[in-house]
Design a protein around this nucleic acid. Structure first.
Lengths: 210, 210
DNA sequence: GTCTATATTTCGATAGAC
DNA sequence: GTCTATCGAAATATAGAC
């Protein structure tokens, strides 16, 4: 029988604090980069003493690794919609929708990932060589099948994937530049819809699917 | 009359060393980010004592600012070809060629720029609000003119520009990821031509210009 | 599990001889 | 203009009381 008055179990405290720290870390790493981020600032954002961070994550690099892995998971699930589709209009359209939504909802995660890759992927190189490589060849094969079935033009599947990643993630990674060019204001709902439509129309027409 | 035996003038020494330091700094800033880069490492790469860096550039931020400005200059000139064109096939095609060539020749510069923007443009915000804003509205007007003349589909000019930046710069900023997916080897000449062709074909068809 | 105080390292920057 | 030695600040990480 459990005690009635105890507010939180040990595991719950741990999970709650880890989540709190990871959210703060994602924000700080995105804004300052790995080298520019400090454990003190992450602790301040999380509202915890700095020493507690080292209690839950041994080193700054361990904490950073967790942040990058979390983003990678979100990334991978975005492609589920692509697999169940009958053709490129439905499949790639859904993938663009999902990726654009992630760019809007998780811009910090996207930036941390971009920064990690730009600096040579010192922490997640193994993921690039295993999971991402498999993911890419699988989706390239799917695209090639659509080409063989005459559902789209004969484009290079890999370069199409790069274009999909580049265009969608640009709205997160270069969001500050876009905001500046938008008069200093973030894109509103209507503008996000326009962005999504523009990307989808140009790419689907670009691959001869519409 | 100048003395015959003197090897280098003062100004020549200064210019030579500044160039040397700037090249080393671009490389180190690209690989480690502003926060991760150290003056010691830049000095080592440049082959100079650390104190000499502070002789030519007062602070780390001054040095960084110079690196970013240099990149921005290269960026701006890439669009010259676009202005003299009669239509999108020639103009945007040439712009893609120029941007892809920069991604290949100056990947470090592209990464430093990307990193600067991703972190909120703390150093070159004024450039975004003046030079880049003017540049963008001018090119958007040019694209709109082509649309009005029936030379391409009625796409949103701003989002087309974002797509051009995103796709071309992706080959520099995410070059490490592309290299990993390419079996660990950088793209060779043939693969770069294929990349350029893929981007050009998909975008020009995507905007209804071909 | 929490938090203050501190050990240890490293960085940006400078002083000063050459 | 060059370079060694070093200062002072700030960072990661830990010790140890609670």
């Amino acid at each position: 029988m459990t005690e009635p008055a105890r507010p939180l179990r040990r595991n719950e405290i741990r999970q709650q604090n880890e989540t709190l720290i990871l959210q703060a870390a994602e924000k700080v790493f995105a804004e300052a980069g790995f080298g520019g981020a400090t454990m003190q600032l992450i602790a301040d954002v999380a509202g915890l003493p700095k020493a507690n961070l080292h209690y839950y994550f041994a080193t700054k690099e361990d904490l950073y690794r967790q942040v990058v892995q979390n983003i990678f998971e979100i990334w991978l699930h975005a492609a589920d919609s692509m697999d169940q589709a009958d053709g490129p209009v439905e499949g790639i359209g859904a993938y663009i929708d999902a990726k654009m939504e992630i760019s809007r909802r998780h811009p910090d995660g996207s930036k941390v990932w971009a920064s990690e890759v730009m600096h040579g992927a010192p922490v997640i190189q193994d993921y690039l060589e295993t999971t991402l490589r498999e993911w890419t060849s699988g989706r390239a094969a799917l695209i090639q099948r659509w080409i063989d079935e005459g559902k789209m033009a004969a484009v290079n599947p890999e370069h199409l994937l790069y274009m999909l990643w580049a265009t969608t993630q640009h709205y997160a990674d270069f969001g500050h530049q876009i905001e500046t060019l938008n008069g200093g204001k973030p894109l509103n709902d209507k503008q996000w819809r326009a962005a999504k439509d523009s990307v989808k129309t140009m790419i689907l027409r670009g691959i001869g699917a519409i």
